[in-house]
Design a protein around this nucleic acid. Structure first.
Lengths: 199, 199
DNA sequence: AGGTATACGTACCGATCGGTAACATTGTCA
DNA sequence: TGACAATGTTACCGATCGGTACGTATACCT
């Protein structure tokens, strides 16, 4: 039961598995995982189906690989906001949410790949869902920790409140499009923080 | 292009379309729309496939019918919370969110059928998505109106903040299960309201 | 040159997808 | 009795689903 995860080597012919993951990532995010067939993936990647199944054990595992990559990029964005305001969790949250708020206003915004995957696969133990759940649990942990650092009276409640706002932004971003409620996520988060600190 | 919507008559033999909608509603909500085939629906409804296509033009329209029914039940719950606290929008929100918070803690909670459908069908104009978007826009309108009645400084921002919390509760409810962040949705909403009023 | 391992393509699999044509059966009401 | 509406029965459609058996090309090492 080996798991093949294509590693990216510096230039020179891109491996088939690499092209597949690249295309799958794009299609899965934009259209959803269930909506995209393996045939379409290999066709647009310019490879053939056996190549997919040599690099990935199944479509479900391909989806999981897509999410693992998504996870890395997510934390890169998150840590970027954190690094921009050392020791100031409130500013870190503001930076992160301001960026999310802007992204949600873009015309083809499709929310969070993790969140969407969890909606598509409610069954516990599904490879894609496992990755998604792990990501969200870690996010919750970090938000609560930041809330504690801020000195909130009830840090766990504030951390969870921020998580609710974030998930709400992901969803309403793709539901309402530009001009939707998600554009106020940073402002609302700051109001919530303010209310949670003075107590 | 006629649209057949089965009406429920008082007792006596349940029509085929009625049984189908009943089963479809259950399966679509629990497993997702894409995950459920029409064969499974008719099998569990104890009817045959032609019966389905005599009552509904397509699977997509069956999904839309499911959501139209969901819409009715949603507003029934919403209006129940409103009616329980006449003239007191803050208490109305609290009642509605307390109820949501409790529902999200149930083991097999699957979030909001509307939200989930929008995630499953990102394509604009899809029959299911159309119903979902209409529901959410109306919800946004009402939340903003309630925020205005409360006397919030920036009513639209507060209304949108409440919507973000609600959507966040729907999603994190099915992501985290019992003990997840959704259980604090009512508390966080009240904090947000409090912060938005004193300004 | 020959072996060998890696990478890839051709062609195919059974199952399921949403949807339909044609006909038989039933119950109801006039 | 006869007409009608609703449903069931059976069989089928082309398309797509995820997945695989098997042969071929290329490159490297000896």
């Amino acid at each position: 039961m080996k798991r093949i995860e294509p590693t990216i080597k510096a230039d020179e012919p891109p491996r088939a598995g690499e092209k597949i993951l690249r295309v799958a990532r794009d299609l899965f995010y934009r259209q959803g995982i269930r909506a995209v067939g393996v045939d379409e993936i290999v066709r647009r990647a310019g490879v053939t189906k056996p190549s997919l199944y040599r690099s990935f054990p199944s479509k479900d595992e391909l989806a999981a690989s897509y999410l693992r990559q998504y996870d890395l990029e997510f934390w890169a964005r998150f840590d970027e906001a954190v690094a921009a305001h050392p020791g100031d969790p409130r500013a870190q949250i503001a930076a992160f949410l301001t960026r999310i708020g802007k992204r949600t206003q873009k015309p083809d915004y499709r929310g969070c790949g993790m969140t969407n995957a969890a909606v598509e696969y409610p069954e516990h133990g599904h490879p894609a869902r496992v990755v998604s759940e792990a990501n969200k649990q870690e996010l919750r942990r970090r938000l609560r920790a930041m809330a504690a650092t801020m000195g909130a009276g009830d840090a766990d409640t504030l951390g969870d409140g921020l998580l609710l706002l974030i998930e709400g932004a992901y969803i309403s971003g793709q539901l309402f499009g530009a001009g939707g409620p998600a554009k106020s996520v940073a402002r609302n988060a700051d109001l919530l923080i303010e209310a949670s600190l003075k107590k």
